[in-house]
Design a protein around this nucleic acid. Structure first.
Length: 608
DNA sequence: AAAAAAG
């Protein structure tokens, strides 16, 4: 891919300049912005106490390098050290002392301020205030299970600790989202959780807050000191590299100045840097399954100290064939069994396979189902247009052109264009660029660096058009996507729902346009049904196609009633008896009989 | 059939 091929000719010179500078910027997770590099270099003689304050660890503790000095970095401290948490007064308020001393020993590197990057975002809170928080109140939520802790209405009601509360403020979170209102108290109560919710609903914070808070407040046994092996306390698994990066970025914000160390590991990037990060100590490890298995086999990571396990986008991971690797990680390595760890399982859909995973990985769990923020029902306007294959490109450019005319205050709304194949993505991107539309693309054949660069360039608005395969369909939270174009419709209505879910996020309106032609016949009925349910105008021609298409329309999971059939699977399994580490709960897996029929059409349509 | 992910 030559650079010129990806250079837009249409954007004005200022845009081009911005584009060039942005794309030249390295975007690896460990990237330290220049101003921070300068700062740490400019302050070599910074007094230890100031460093300690910076880490939020209280006045008496001294710098981490002092810590090393006083207690010997490589020495086994032994049982007597157990008092360390209290003895260092102020260190996380009586907490995790010895467990995190590896982290403290991390060499006194100054923690980069993860919020500094927010300034780089051209779209600031000014626009974020446009979030329609009232929309949250309409989101349907269901919980089930034994002794479900009541939801909270404000962050203040939850005791997350000062440091975390401050980071919540820095994140400008005003009010917990529905999934946070329910999931945080459940997790803080130590319960396992099976949650049906999508990214964009505030899911990441929902599982990060309790994990960070737990790491800060609980005592942990001394972590073993095997050379070059990292012992994280929490593991967060996600299906794609970009999603792992995104979770890592957020988790770093949430754990800023808490001393809790977050590390990300994923494929496609050089492993050496990740190994170095791991050696510096890790409390929370965010990873894609493949790279983690690699690290486990190299014995560079051990899971024996895991207290928290979170699986994000579990259905997606199964779709991608990760089940063997996930089972290996969770069941066949040295991870503590259910009940000895706290497990949080998140999935946008809830098919049988996920239920089975839940019964295998969770102990006495609480089930939580949350409707989408800005579900297709209300916040996404859906259009379908009949476009011949040969007309798609010019039709897309017409749309993009019209969109440009409509732009208010000079800012180009972001447009995400989904295509079926990687080759198709490259070709369309090239076509758009040649015709003066600033586009980039993301798919699995691009290098990880190119992928991250494309995403960044898109997010910042430098390249307001992103052509993508399904790598970007789920989970990625890209604010300000104004328009999702299904240039090629997927063959599965679920994929369609996920794709259009990239817009209309956080209570803002979104537009989704689909190009339909005779190669999409199998989608006619599911699409028409979905749009109908979402109170969208269904074109008469689509209704006619839908009527003509044989029932079922391909593998249409939405018509299947097997969503909750998994309950039986759970009953059949006898894991329950043997693994009930909670003792008192008598094996209640707690999905109520009433659950199956409990949802309105509009709600299920957002999940299935 | 295509996409994603370990190298």
């Amino acid at each position: 891919m030559s650079a010129t091929m990806r250079t837009a000719t249409w954007a004005d010179s200022a845009d081009n300049a911005a584009n060039a500078s942005s794309t030249a910027r390295p975007v690896k997770p460990a990237y330290v912005p220049p101003h921070l590099r300068n700062r740490s270099m400019a302050a070599p003689a910074e007094p230890p106490s100031l460093v300690a304050n910076d880490r939020g660890l209280g006045n008496n503790w001294g710098s981490s390098s002092n810590f090393k000095q006083d207690f010997g970095a490589g020495r086994q401290v032994g049982g007597g050290y157990g008092g360390g948490g209290g003895g260092f007064g102020g260190f996380n308020r009586g907490g995790a002392g010895n467990g995190r001393e590896r982290v403290g020993g991390g060499g006194g590197r100054r923690e980069a301020n993860p919020f500094e990057n927010d300034v780089d975002e051209p779209f600031t809170e000014q626009e974020n205030t446009g979030i329609n928080f009232d929309a949250y109140d309409d989101i349907p939520v269901e919980t089930s299970g034994e002794n479900v802790p009541p939801p909270v209405n404000t962050f203040a009601e939850i005791d997350l600790g000062d440091a975390l509360n401050q980071n919540i403020k820095r994140c400008k979170y005003v009010k917990p989202t529905p999934v946070q209102r329910y999931a945080i108290p459940i997790s803080l109560a130590g319960r396992d959780l099976m949650a049906c919710a999508q990214t964009g609903s505030g899911k990441t914070a929902a599982f990060c807050f309790p994990i960070i808070s737990g790491i800060l407040t609980e005592q942990y046994a001394q972590r073993p000191r095997v050379a070059r092996t990292a012992y994280p306390l929490a593991l967060i698994l996600s299906p794609t590299r970009e999603l792992s990066c995104q979770i890592h970025d957020e988790a770093k914000k949430f754990s800023y100045q808490t001393g809790v160390k977050v590390v990300v590991a994923y494929g496609g990037a050089p492993i050496t840097q990740q190994l170095r990060e791991l050696e510096r100590g890790v409390d929370i490890l965010v990873a894609t399954p493949g790279r983690l298995v690699d690290l486990l086999e190299r014995a560079r990571v051990s899971l024996q100290m895991i207290r928290y396990l979170a699986l994000d986008e579990a259905d997606r991971m199964l779709d991608m064939g990760f089940e063997p690797q996930i089972r290996k990680i969770v069941e066949q390595m040295d991870m503590p069994p259910p009940g000895m760890r706290q497990t949080l399982l998140f999935s946008a859909t809830f098919p049988k396979e996920i239920q089975r995973l839940a019964s295998d990985f969770l102990a006495s769990y609480i089930f939580l189902a949350v409707g989408r923020v800005g579900s297709s029902t209300d916040l996404i306007a859906q259009r379908v247009e009949y476009v011949l294959e040969s007309d798609k490109r010019s039709h897309l450019m017409d749309l993009l052109h019209a969109q440009r005319e409509n732009d208010v205050n000079g800012k180009q709304g972001l447009t995400l264009v989904f295509v079926e194949t990687k080759k198709g993505a490259d070709a369309l991107e090239h076509c758009l660029c040649v015709n003066g539309f600033p586009a980039t693309c993301i798919h699995g054949d691009r290098t990880q660096q190119e992928r991250e660069q494309a995403l960044r360039s898109f997010k910042t608005g430098n390249t307001p058009i992103l052509v993508a395969t399904d790598v970007a369909a789920r989970g990625l939270d890209i604010p300000r996507v104004a328009h999702v174009v299904n240039f090629d419709l997927p063959n599965d209505i679920d994929d369609y729902v996920h794709r259009i879910g990239r817009t209309g996020r956080a209570g803002k309106m979104g537009l989704a346009t689909a190009f339909f032609n005779d190669s999409n016949l199998s989608m006619a009925k599911p699409l028409a049904d979905l749009m109908q349910e979402a109170n969208q105008e269904v074109p008469a021609w689509l209704t006619r196609y839908a009527a003509r298409t044989p029932y079922g329309g391909g593998r249409n999971k939405r018509t299947g009633g097997a969503r909750f059939g998994g309950r039986d699977v759970r009953k059949e399994s006898s894991y329950n008896k043997g693994n009930d580490y909670y003792g008192g709960n008598g094996g209640g897996y707690g999905v109520p009989a009433s659950y199956g029929g409990g949802y309105g059409q509009g709600v299920t349509s957002a999940w299935d």
